[in-house]
Nucleic acid binder design. Sequence first.
RNA 1: GGAGAAGUGGCAGAGUGGUCGAAUGCACUUGUCUUGAAAACAAGCGAGGGUCACACCUCCGGGGGUUCGAAUCCCUCCUUCUCCGCCA
Length: 471
Amino acid sequence: MLFFCQLFFRFGKHTTTTSQGKPRFLYTFFTNDFILPSFYGNFAALIRPMLQVQEIRNAFDDISSRLAKRGKRFDQELNDVVALDDKRKHTQTELDSLLASLNAISKEIGDCFKAGKRDEAEALKAKTVEIKEQTKQLESELREAIDALTDALTQIPNAPHDSVPTGKTPEENEIILSHGSEPSLTTNKPHWELCEQYDLIDFELGVKVTGAGFPVYKGKGARLQRALINFFLDEGLKQGYNEIQPPIFINEASGFGTGQLPDKEGQMYHMTVDNLFAIPTAEVPLTNLYRDVIVNKDDFPIKNMGYTPCFRREAGSYGKDVRGLNRLHQFDKVEIIQITHPDESYKTLEEMSLYVQSLLQKLGLHYRVLRLCGGDMGFTSALTYDMEVYSAAQEKWLEVSSVSCFETFQSNRLKLRFKNDDGKMQYAHTLNGSALALPRIVAALLENNQTDSGIEMPEVLRPYLGFDRID
RNA sequence: GGAGAAGUGGCAGAGUGGUCGAAUGCACUUGUCUUGAAAACAAGCGAGGGUCACACCUCCGGGGGUUCGAAUCCCUCCUUCUCCGCCA
């Protein structure tokens, strides 16, 4: 934890803005040494990770009760934050006044020299010695105070939306709708058997080349992948999403921006030689395009999407859940993100949920939508809908998409802001969702459409596929 | 990988030890003028902390140092650009 705190502290001041919402890329963040920077230069970045201190102070009870939806109370943590922020303020005020007097004396000395009063100047110089000692002391105190505050703040997850059900486990998620019905099948093989039977995906070969969880797609299996990616991108285009091809490796700063670091560092593949991480989702680069950006409020909503392979170490998972396509180290996904005005974000979340559902409907899949309970939601989310498709052969629901609203939780770290109608800087809201992740869609398509003589492909995919069925 | 050059406000671009948070231009906002627009003119216009509001404090790529005082001097790191090499 300490390690990553130090990393986090090395955010610099890199304000920039955009015209027409186009981000600028600034990569002057980190150095290879581990010395903490001067607190002042980085103050803004330091004091504003995750939940906003100001928000905690202003709406303590509200945030407290929202956090309780996660099945645990955070009052102690919240109180700590306020107390640590008080300490920070006191220390800083003290230091500031000391610096003010130092500045005043320096100016006086300058004036004395100009007026030729050498002796007077020397006398004043002597006065600064003691003050400088004191500032050094206070500087280190302030540094410690900020350190402690940031540490406390990063322990607190996002405050769930009012509509989020209280709960700790997936059983407490709320099923808000179900669409379609279970297919009636004459044959009922799991997808890994179908993949072998029709030579679509070779898991063994992947093991040989790389390792478990890195499948090799072959023939119509590979073409199905390509068709789905194109289908998803074309549909997104129709919805007004701007297509982006981001890098699939990211630096540390990006990992912090979207909250993968420091929490999920073990989940990412890390290339230590160059200190880069393979992205676990396109969310990371797509959202980080807007790090340190002041967007024009007229550009809301900003809608971007990107197809990328995703890489996840999935350390610690094993057993039946990882069979076949259910859990992979490398998989493909089209991700959609939006950046909105705070007033619009929940309306946007519904819109994104409907869009993802429309994809599932076009693919003819039986699905349901869950509103995740507080305890099952990600650390950074305020409200998450999960879409699950039914796998007839495995007789279970598979999560294929997750759409979330983060409110200001990410933008706070990213320093993604806009100037509101009052001319004040305000954090934008960020949202994202998968639209969609391929593997489980492929699994469901294969299993739910199997017949004795082959696998029928959905109508919408046929133009992309160039074939109607797999046999 | 080797050799050079450079990193200042939304952009361009001055500024080499003290009235510099930073000239000037562009962009932007508001006002005057105009039927309207343009042009012209006038004013405003970086971010963060702090305050009821001021005051005040911090930030000129990051970090460290010299100095009473640093955008300006020194060290170091990072990044970008140009040339060479290698290569899809």
